[in-house]
Design a protein around this nucleic acid. Structure first.
Length: 277
DNA sequence: CAAGTTACCTGACGGC
DNA sequence: TGCCGTCAGGTAACTT
């Protein structure tokens, strides 16, 4: 499910239910996620503690406790975090349940278990940047993520532009859907060599990435099969897809049929006429 | 060392 | 109806 917009929509949806709330009890399915869940440590450090705020870095959600401990949750492909009444029946793939002193529960559900849950004890954000996020690239909205930065990182690489912008160590948060849509909006072919872009085209692409991510956040994210926000509602940005999932349908701009090709092992959709190498 | 491949896991869907 | 192969929003550990 989730790329940057869906994670950000989840963060915003959770915030009023989580901020300044105390965790009273934590339950765990016992299933291994992408990595082992440090459940004993999570109970020991977070039970009885208040969550001060929920932040986002790349596609990770950061729950910062009053003691400075930080719970980091990644939603993987099918992860969802939602707020429920305790009386609501549990779902099949609910893995973690946090009971709060508000009387509500936050539940982490993840069908494919590609998500991850990590606990960093007493971490300042500066320390996390140097450790947990040391290989994570800048946020796309940060001034650090400039056309000059991207062009410099692209260097002489032979990689396709689409693979390059989906690389989380280059820029955080751009996954397959928004890479496809941003490249379409910028008129750049997904197989174009990243090293071949001049500053002007990098500027254009970056602007489009930012605009599309913000637009998608405003739409509550994209629901392809199963993304739901913290209140269980679908996003509707998928109604604005111009190329993603639209193989053999007409390009909205020129009516040429959208093509689908595999680039870097991922489905890539583009208009062969509007998008230039 | 850059770049390509595989693995992690469940479920939906299409073809036969 | 059901079996089988393929594919899916992500990431990191592999191999080449």
């Amino acid at each position: 499910m989730p790329e940057l917009p869906e994670v950000e929509v989840t963060r915003r949806g959770l915030t009023p239910f989580i901020q300044q709330k105390r965790i009273t009890q934590i339950r765990y399915s016992g299933k291994k996620l992408r990595t082992a869940v440090p459940f004993g440590m999570i109970v020991q450090r977070l039970q009885g503690k208040k969550i001060l705020k929920v932040e986002r870095r790349a596609k990770y959600l950061l729950f910062i406790s009053e003691t400075g401990d930080t719970l980091i949750i990644h939603l993987g492909m099918t992860g969802k975090l939602g707020i429920f009444e305790p009386s609501a029946p549990l779902a099949v793939h609910d893995h973690l349940i946090f009971s709060l002193d508000s009387g509500m529960q936050m539940r982490f559900n993840d069908t494919r278990r590609f998500g991850s849950v990590t606990l960093l004890t007493n971490q300042q954000s500066q320390v996390m940047e140097e450790t947990f996020f040391r290989t994570t690239g800048p946020e796309p909205f940060s001034p650090e993520c400039s056309p000059e930065y991207l062009k410099k990182r692209a260097g002489k690489t032979s990689q396709a532009i689409k693979i390059f912008i989906m690389n989380s160590s280059i820029v955080a948060g751009v996954g397959n859907i928004y890479a496809n849509e941003s490249l379409y909006a910028a008129g750049i072919h997904p197989a174009a060599k990243a090293s071949g872009l001049g500053l002007k085209r990098w500027q254009n692409l970056l602007t489009n990435i930012r605009e599309i991510l913000l637009w998608a956040i405003d739409c509550g994210g994209s629901t392809i099969s199963d993304f739901l926000n913290a209140s269980g509602q679908q996003g509707y940005f998928q109604a604005n897809f111009k190329v993603y999932g639209r193989e053999n349908q007409p390009c909205p701009a020129c009516m040429e049929l959208i093509k689908k090709e595999t680039i870097g092992g991922r489905a890539s959709y583009f208009c062969p006429s509007c998008q230039k190498r």
